[in-house]
Lab assay of single mutants.
Amino acid sequence: TIDDAFRAIERAIQAENEGRYREALKHFLDGGEMIVTAAEKEASQKVRNLLLHKGKEVLEWAEHLAEWILE
Score class of each variant (00 low, 15 high):
28 F>W: 15
65 L>H: 00
5 A>S: 02
49 N>H: 08
20 R>G: 03
62 A>L: 10
32 G>L: 15
57 E>L: 13
51 L>G: 01
65 L>W: 03
21 Y>S: 00
67 E>K: 10
40 E>F: 15
51 L>V: 01
71 E>C: 10
24 A>S: 02
7 R>A: 09
17 N>S: 13
34 M>L: 11
27 H>E: 07
53 H>W: 12
9 I>L: 07
28 F>R: 00
44 S>T: 09
6 F>T: 03
40 E>I: 15
1 T>H: 09
41 K>C: 10
19 G>H: 05
38 A>G: 04
44 S>R: 07
59 L>G: 01
26 K>R: 10
11 R>M: 09
68 W>L: 14
50 L>M: 13
55 G>R: 07
20 R>C: 08
70 L>P: 04
10 E>H: 11
45 Q>G: 11
65 L>I: 05
8 A>T: 13
43 A>N: 12
68 W>R: 09
22 R>M: 14
36 V>D: 01
9 I>P: 00
35 I>H: 03
10 E>K: 08
27 H>A: 06
31 G>L: 14
45 Q>Y: 07
48 R>M: 06
20 R>H: 08
13 I>W: 09
22 R>Q: 10
30 D>Q: 14
49 N>W: 06
4 D>P: 03
52 L>W: 04
70 L>D: 10
59 L>Q: 07
43 A>Y: 06
4 D>T: 04
41 K>E: 08
26 K>M: 09
37 T>L: 12
17 N>A: 14
4 D>V: 05
49 N>L: 07
52 L>S: 05
26 K>Y: 08
42 E>K: 03
32 G>H: 15
4 D>L: 13
46 K>E: 14
35 I>Q: 01
45 Q>A: 09
26 K>I: 11
47 V>S: 04
37 T>N: 11
34 M>R: 07
21 Y>M: 05
66 A>F: 09
30 D>V: 12
17 N>L: 14
41 K>R: 09
63 E>H: 13
7 R>Y: 03
4 D>W: 07
37 T>D: 10
10 E>L: 10
28 F>C: 05
16 E>T: 15
63 E>F: 10
59 L>T: 04
63 E>M: 12
42 E>N: 08
6 F>K: 05
14 Q>G: 04
40 E>Q: 14
6 F>P: 01
67 E>R: 14
46 K>S: 11
48 R>Q: 05
34 M>D: 01
17 N>M: 11
57 E>Y: 07
54 K>P: 03
26 K>G: 05
59 L>H: 03
35 I>S: 02
51 L>S: 00
69 I>P: 02
11 R>L: 13
57 E>Q: 15
50 L>G: 09
5 A>G: 05
63 E>G: 08
22 R>S: 10
28 F>S: 01
8 A>F: 12
69 I>W: 05
25 L>K: 01
4 D>Q: 08
5 A>H: 02
49 N>Y: 05
4 D>H: 11
19 G>A: 02
44 S>K: 05
25 L>D: 00
6 F>W: 08
57 E>T: 10
53 H>Y: 07
38 A>C: 11
32 G>Q: 07
25 L>Q: 01
2 I>M: 07
56 K>Q: 07
28 F>T: 01
8 A>I: 12
23 E>D: 12
68 W>P: 00
46 K>C: 14
18 E>A: 12
59 L>C: 09
10 E>V: 11
50 L>K: 11
55 G>Y: 15
66 A>G: 04
57 E>D: 10
22 R>P: 04
60 E>W: 08
1 T>L: 15
21 Y>Q: 00
18 E>K: 04
38 A>I: 14
49 N>I: 09
17 N>P: 02
32 G>N: 08
11 R>T: 05
32 G>S: 11
33 E>F: 13
42 E>C: 14
22 R>L: 14
49 N>F: 07
64 H>C: 11
32 G>A: 15
14 Q>C: 10
51 L>Y: 06
2 I>N: 02
8 A>W: 08
35 I>T: 01
45 Q>N: 07
60 E>T: 07
29 L>A: 02
16 E>K: 13
12 A>R: 00
51 L>W: 05
33 E>N: 15
10 E>P: 00
18 E>Q: 07
64 H>L: 09
34 M>G: 05
70 L>Q: 14
59 L>K: 02
62 A>Y: 04
50 L>T: 09
68 W>Y: 12
70 L>A: 13
47 V>T: 10
56 K>A: 11
60 E>K: 13
64 H>F: 06
27 H>R: 03
25 L>Y: 07
4 D>C: 11
9 I>V: 06
2 I>A: 05
15 A>Q: 01
16 E>D: 13
56 K>L: 12
69 I>R: 00
65 L>Q: 00
8 A>D: 02
59 L>M: 08
26 K>H: 09
56 K>T: 05
43 A>P: 13
64 H>N: 07
54 K>Q: 07
12 A>P: 03
29 L>P: 01
36 V>T: 08
11 R>S: 06
9 I>W: 03
45 Q>E: 14
47 V>I: 13
11 R>P: 00
23 E>F: 01
5 A>K: 01
19 G>Q: 05
69 I>Y: 07
10 E>N: 08
